[in-house]
Design a protein around this nucleic acid. Sequence first.
DNA 1: CAGTATCCAAAACGATACTG
DNA 2: CAGTATCGTTTTGGATACTG
Lengths: 117, 117
Amino acid sequence: MPDFIYNNKVYYNPVEFAMDRIGGTWKMPILWRLKERIFRFGELKKDIPHITDKMLTSQLRQLEAEGFIHRKVYPVVPPKVEYSITEKGKTAIPIIETIRDYGLTLMELEGIQHDMK
Amino acid sequence: MPDFIYNNKVYYNPVEFAMDRIGGTWKMPILWRLKERIFRFGELKKDIPHITDKMLTSQLRQLEAEGFIHRKVYPVVPPKVEYSITEKGKTAIPIIETIRDYGLTLMELEGIQHDMK
DNA sequence: CAGTATCCAAAACGATACTG
DNA sequence: CAGTATCGTTTTGGATACTG
């Protein structure tokens, strides 16, 4: 697998390409929540611990630009914006689940306590 | 899933924990190669395009510290060091394969050319 | 309510020179 | 051969204040 360029960025392999799309601290937590239902901006912010306005906005914009989520703006006052997962976005869910399960396995190996829920 | 701490670092979820161990630009490319056979330092460096001495060293050290690879030093001149994957390291291979396949799927969706081999 | 705009800190990554 | 050491750049993430 040689290097390739997409949107002016060089990638060394497909793993890098995938992680550029759904990696980072916040994209998987966001997609993970949207798999069940539609969320408003404020709901996501309340549901995802530690995330700041700035990070939530920037990650939502990137996920939207890549086609993983849809952003629906209602022209009302006060503003109302709803985020939902797309068909493309849904393809990421099994991957996230795989990585998550592996993380839990590694955590168990290290004796880290965790509640499943 | 609440936050948890491991080695003085805070993690928000299992995905983050897993990616801290096998994520980043170089760890998967390294493990991917070691799944087939033992490599010497110089062989890895030649086989992984763009990687620098510094990154290769630091990533090998981290993978070793986490138990994913084994480092065997031969007390000879000139130095000879062999890197091999451990049983724990082997558990990462299917995960890497999953992410890699997903990357290829996304690339195809975007019409990016790639040779499989 | 759903963001922007600034400024800033830390981490990851890289280039280059050097060495037991 | 298999690294270290040093310095610099880039990327990512965060704090805070402000707004249509």
